[in-house]
Write a protein that binds this DNA or RNA. Structure first.
Lengths: 372, 372
DNA sequence: TGCACTTACGCAACACTGTTGCCAAAGTGG
DNA sequence: CCACTTTGGCAACAGTGTTGCGTAAGTGCA
């Protein structure tokens, strides 16, 4: 995110259209967070700080566009009962793609982020661009056919890093050097005839997890232990990607000066130490190492909670949660990330959905001093 | 910043007043960045993305309030010469206070952030609240008298952490447990009869350094090596404080599993290792250790550049810059933070000034999709 | 049953934002 | 002297959220 002021090409000035869209996204976000329970106009007004009248106008526009609808009424609290407004989940859909080293997962999510349909198939990531694009197109076509060909806003793609999420280009994926420089976003966009957003798998997962929680300024880290070790960071409610989408290189922090060499060129990286412990079957040690690294990160960033994911963790979740928790202060919650092996692909769909709710977008900021 | 949505008590909804203030702050920020060279209305329009007419209205309000003024004209480029607009630096002032363990520094900064007057005096931080408040009030009075009693917007206070910048309360400052829980912000605010903002010394320094640079989304870390070792983080153009102002605990990352014990309770913290090297006079090792820790941080957060400061660094800046640079990839710039021993106190004044320019505030965000 | 009260919400008029269309001012260049 | 370019202001405009007030639809109590 973010270009507070002007990153190249952005315009930080705000006009009435930007203001309207911002407030609309805000209301949509509150409706999404409210889920099936919905929210009344009065509640939305309290949540946004806008006047009830403004909310009425905004929800009117949303209802007209089909994104929201009235859904019954609340019990009265002594006056006219509140009219419940709900997001219409089926009003729009988004595709999420998870390109892993050996698997392709494709999901179709509705506006609430709920998976409507999902397909998984083996993937030879090393087979090169055309083969992978073919496989993706085939799976997407099949998935949309299954789901009855709904309208789709776009596709979010989660891929192994490093990559450039702004340019939509892959870099030197470990083990697959042939992908270096491949313009995956544009190639997929042309192939699918849809807008495509590309991001690192860990960032996509973090975004998805951020959207499951309340729309607040919370900070957390998603730690992914699989074939490698990476992190997705959500700081102050936003995914932190860094200038070159390089943030989250969690595995290559040096934990042991002059320790064993790592392919990255350094010595004593968390990743080599941790993967060695995993390979040796010493889960307790791997968990402890993960915990020490997590503690470094938590202290540096003042993070609220830590979510664990990835194949290795999912193989023995309790051991990892216990081990990590032991290294952290009590104030920091440690949990397994909800969603299991779907965490990443569901986050990928959120790459498309989140901007509708004003989340995870490159944004500018507006002060509040002049309010009310 | 940030509360994308609503941190407790904030209102993310944007009304016309918020929009006006945002754009005014934006223009003011561009004028500040332009410095004495100033900027024409057309340049401001290009920088904000607003129409020239909107800029004319906004600058009209700013001129009316005395914050900006016309200052001559540019050479013509083939048409009517542009009228140069400048910030009026003397239109408002802010106090910056740096409470260190043994020194009190007070500065008066103008709107450009330039120090108009500065006083430094020894301070017995352990003498307790009343004594420190007395000393601060005395120095501030003397400073304002020196400067001719200008109008002051408020005071920004930089203090050793940990502390709570939202509540304005100190926590257990290392070596001075008696300060734990002291409501420094409110006490000072009453004593000085001014609005007061409190923040950690490293955060204040980072904010000041962020404002020296362009208003972009750059990320950097300010590493402060003095009696302790801490960091101020600027991520995507904004100071990252964390939920409890606890971010920046850079010194207590574990660099050496099962290394020497640290007062914090862990073993092998960067701080004990580094301070031991400093105490032993081994600057090269201290610098290398600092570099390893910095590299961990840079990789984790994808940071553009690293600025070094603090007494120990300033005693032998070249050695530290060299040592840190050796541990980092070439893409990361390493420099000594400008400002020398004034870095922190000048940043403290920015705690008051930055919000005028829409920087460093707890903000909400507004999307840009509807623009132009 | 009737009435006061509370709560939810919309209509209409309003204040104020940035935008558009147009024009004047003030230079350059032939 | 005239055509052209660039800057920037005035006036009318579209559209935002706000305010004032009226209406709908419940509860609670005599």
């Amino acid at each position: 995110m973010s270009t507070i002021g002007a990153g190249p090409g952005t315009h930080p000035g705000a006009n009435l259209a930007a203001l309207r869209d911002h407030n609309a996204a805000l209301v949509l976000g509150l409706l999404r967070d409210a889920g099936e329970a919905g929210a009344s106009r009065a509640e939305l007004a309290a949540g946004t700080g806008l006047t009830p009248q403004a909310v009425s106008k905004i929800t009117g526009r949303l209802r007209e566009s089909g994104l929201a609808a009235e859904a019954g009424r609340r019990a009265s609290t002594g006056g006219k009962p509140a009219t419940v407004l709900c997001l219409v989940p089926g009003a729009a859909h988004a595709l999420g793609l998870h390109l892993d080293r050996d698997t392709l997962t494709v999901t179709l999510a509705d506006l609430m982020g709920a998976a409507v349909a999902t397909r998984t198939t083996p993937l030879a990531f090393g087979a090169g661009g055309d083969a992978v694009l073919d496989a993706v197109a085939r799976e997407v076509t099949a998935l949309l056919a299954e789901a009855g060909a709904p309208a789709v806003l776009g596709a979010g793609v989660a891929a192994p890093g490093p990559l450039d999420h702004r340019g939509g280009v892959l870099h030197r994926v470990t083990g697959f050097p042939q992908w270096d420089g491949f313009p995956l976003r544009d190639a997929l966009s042309e192939r699918l005839a849809l807008p495509v957003t590309l991001d690192k798998d860990t960032n996509a997962a973090a975004l998805g997890l951020a959207l499951r929680g309340p729309r607040d300024a919370s900070s957390f880290a998603y730690l992914h232990l699989g074939t490698g070790l990476g992190a997705g960071l959500v700081l102050g409610g936003r995914v932190h990607r860094g200038a070159r989408t390089g943030a989250g290189e969690f595995g290559h922090q040096v934990l042991q000066l002059d320790g064993p060499p790592c392919p990255c060129g350094n010595r004593g990286c968390l990743e080599v130490l941790c993967l060695a412990a995993v390979a040796a079957g010493d889960t307790a040690r791997a968990a402890r190492l993960l915990g020490v690294g997590a503690a470094n990160l938590v202290r540096l960033l003042d993070i609220d909670h830590v979510l664990l994911g990835g194949r290795t963790v999912l193989a023995d979740p309790d051991a990892y949660v216990r081990g990590v928790r032991a290294e952290l202060a009590d104030a920091t919650a440690v949990r397994v990330a909800p969603g299991g092996d779907r965490t990443v692909v569901e986050g990928a769909a959120e790459l498309v959905l989140a901007p509708l709710f004003g989340r995870g977008v490159d944004e500018m900021t507006i002060g509040l001093s002049g309010g009310h």
